[in-house]
Amino acid sequence: MRGFVQDKAEGNSTLSEIKKVQDEISFDAFFGCYAYVTQSGFRFFELNIGKSFWQRTTSRWLLGIDYGRSDPRAMKELAGRKNSEVRIFDGHFVVNSPGFKPRRDFHPKAAMTENTATGAQGMVLGSGNFSYNGLWRSVEAGASIITLTKPDTTKYIKPVTSGFEALWDAACPLKDVVSDYEKKLSELASAKDAERSPIGDRSAHGFWIEAGYVTKNRGPQKPGNQIFAPNGFRKYFGLGRAKASSTLIGEITFETAAGSKIKKNYRENDNGMEKLTLPMPEANGFGVYDGKVLVFEPSNGEFVLSAIEREEFERCYGHRLVNIGKMGGGRRYGEYV
């Protein structure tokens, strides 16, 4: 048994504990139970645990959709991986409840693992959800347990796994609720956007865009740093159209969370959209951009860049959003005052 406080400087995290258990018992069965999951969590997990995880491990994921916190795209990514199955706790009830309000909150953060050949088992329990913040960035705490004998497993692991196995048996498959969940989430977002106050005489303070899926432009083992933006998004950066016979619209200087100033290209793309190249996420305090909301604050011709989880963005900026638009794939963008 060992406890940990999540601290990037020390290299301790929820994910690093899962990797330690993986190294120590070579598990081939994984059972993850999390209150919610985000695209950033899925992408960060896959990049760091390795794509071979899906080949050699049978994984099950018992997830919550309480209050609409889980990202349906992340859940579908998990369900689409080899040897992986996703179920939703009390899914039929919650998806039909106004605001996705549960009758009993689903709030665990637990990873249970087993080497089915040797019988060794491991478990990582803590406060970190299946998001980039929960797996790596935020201040979290937890403990990991490894058992090599049946008596120890019965004493330390089984009291937890038996409870979650019963919940798994009662849960519904993701496919039964994900379409309704995705549709109702979109409807809720559209209803909120329609209620936003018009900008009136106020001037915008900055602008934002949902990153969504970030192209793997740097290869499958590195987080991407390019996103597509709608045609005309360049105006927010004070840029005009590209010159004839060129796709380069201009250069943008970003100030990052790590304090660095980085200059990147902004281009027209052949699909009628615009391509924004961002600072390398892992080197500049962002981890991954997937599923986050990118917030740009103009500052003396440069742009202070933040990358925020969807729920946190709504809490911090929701009352300040104006002039909201939506791209064909559903991603939103706009300004804030």
Rank of each mutant, 00 (worst) to 15 (best):
3 G>S: 10
19 K>L: 15
22 Q>L: 12
23 D>H: 01
29 A>V: 07
29 A>K: 11
44 F>V: 04
45 F>Q: 03
52 S>A: 15
56 R>K: 15
57 T>R: 09
64 G>V: 08
66 D>M: 06
66 D>N: 14
67 Y>L: 13
72 P>G: 09
75 M>Y: 06
80 G>D: 14
81 R>L: 05
87 R>D: 01
87 R>N: 04
95 V>S: 06
97 S>N: 10
98 P>S: 07
99 G>Y: 05
106 F>A: 08
109 K>F: 10
114 E>C: 12
114 E>S: 14
114 E>D: 07
114 E>G: 03
115 N>H: 06
118 T>I: 09
120 A>L: 02
135 L>F: 08
136 W>E: 15
146 I>A: 04
151 P>E: 12
152 D>A: 11
158 K>D: 15
161 T>M: 09
170 A>L: 12
172 C>Y: 02
172 C>I: 00
173 P>K: 10
173 P>D: 07
175 K>S: 12
180 D>H: 11
190 S>V: 03
191 A>Y: 05
191 A>S: 14
193 D>R: 04
193 D>H: 11
196 R>Q: 00
197 S>N: 11
200 G>P: 00
207 F>T: 02
210 E>R: 00
215 T>C: 01
216 K>T: 10
216 K>P: 13
220 P>I: 02
223 P>I: 06
225 N>H: 07
226 Q>G: 06
227 I>T: 00
232 G>E: 08
234 R>G: 10
235 K>S: 05
245 S>C: 02
249 I>G: 14
256 T>A: 07
265 N>W: 01
274 E>N: 08
284 N>G: 01
288 V>W: 05
290 D>V: 08
299 S>T: 12
304 V>Y: 10
306 S>E: 15
309 E>W: 02
310 R>H: 11
314 E>M: 12
319 H>A: 12
323 N>P: 11
325 G>D: 06
326 K>G: 07
326 K>D: 02
327 M>T: 02
